[in-house]
């Protein structure tokens, strides 16, 4: 079927066609002599990271089944290096928010994200995770997971087809490959501040922290 002039607001039509805007932006940066030190080591590290993104096995609803299909025989995301789906958030590289996030689940999801080790990425899969989807008007659904987590890639669909998911995963790879130019969404505070926060966390007698005694091990 031919696509007749789709109107997509957030992206220029030309970009949609070749979809290499990330690379073209990097090229522009280089040509304009922006002071970016392109270390060879950086490049190797990012190449390594982008080809070895391990997902967290996380699924709330329908999209999760399609996510399993992406891992299964016909679509097989192991070909691209997404091989090892880890059940422990400590060892995963990205979280694929596959399915609706409800008010009850939101703190748990945030916590899962916090448990992951840097560098970490988030993919919002399906209408529900992007905007609430068909349940936007519900009293118990979060309107888009980007309200609580920084999202790297959005994969629309309800649920998205496995091909779309593979495409989205490859977009994430491209994004990781040029991460040194655009920074990574998680480093919004600098190292000193982070250490300060950590120290406060370790010494604090905050109520919220003590909750852990009952409610930990979301893994």
């Amino acid at each position: 079927m031919e696509v007749r002039n789709p109107r997509i607001k957030s992206m220029k039509y030309e970009d949609f066609n070749d979809n290499e805007y990330i690379e073209s932006m990097v090229r522009e940066l280089r040509e304009n002599g922006t002071n970016v030190v392109v270390g060879c080591l950086d490049e190797v590290i990012e190449w390594g990271r982008s080809n070895s993104l391990w997902p967290l096995t996380f699924a709330t609803s329908c999209c999760g089944i399609e996510f399993m299909a992406v891992g299964a025989a016909r679509y097989d995301f192991a070909r691209f290096g997404f091989e090892v789906a880890r059940a422990s958030p400590r060892q995963a590289d990205f979280i694929m928010v596959a399915g609706t996030i409800t008010h009850k689940m939101a703190p748990v999801l945030k916590r899962l994200y916090d448990q992951m080790a840097d560098p970490k990425y988030v993919i919002a899969t399906g209408g529900c995770a992007i905007s609430g989807g068909p349940f936007k008007k519900s009293y118990h659904v979060v309107d888009g997971v980007d309200k609580i987590l920084p999202v790297d890639v959005y994969i629309p669909g309800c649920p998205p087809r496995p091909e779309a998911m593979l495409y989205g995963l490859m977009q994430l790879q491209r994004k990781v490959k040029v991460q040194r130019f655009f920074g990574d969404v998680n480093r919004q505070i600098d190292r000193k501040e982070c250490e300060e926060l950590l120290r406060r966390d370790l010494t604090a007698e905050k109520n919220e922290l003590n909750v852990e005694k009952d409610a930990n091990h979301e893994q």
Binding site: T60, F135, Y139
Partner: peptide, 13 residues
Amino acid sequence: GYIHRGIEKMCEE
């Protein structure tokens, strides 16, 4: 309830 979406309430509207 971690995936309670309130479908029954939504249906009423």
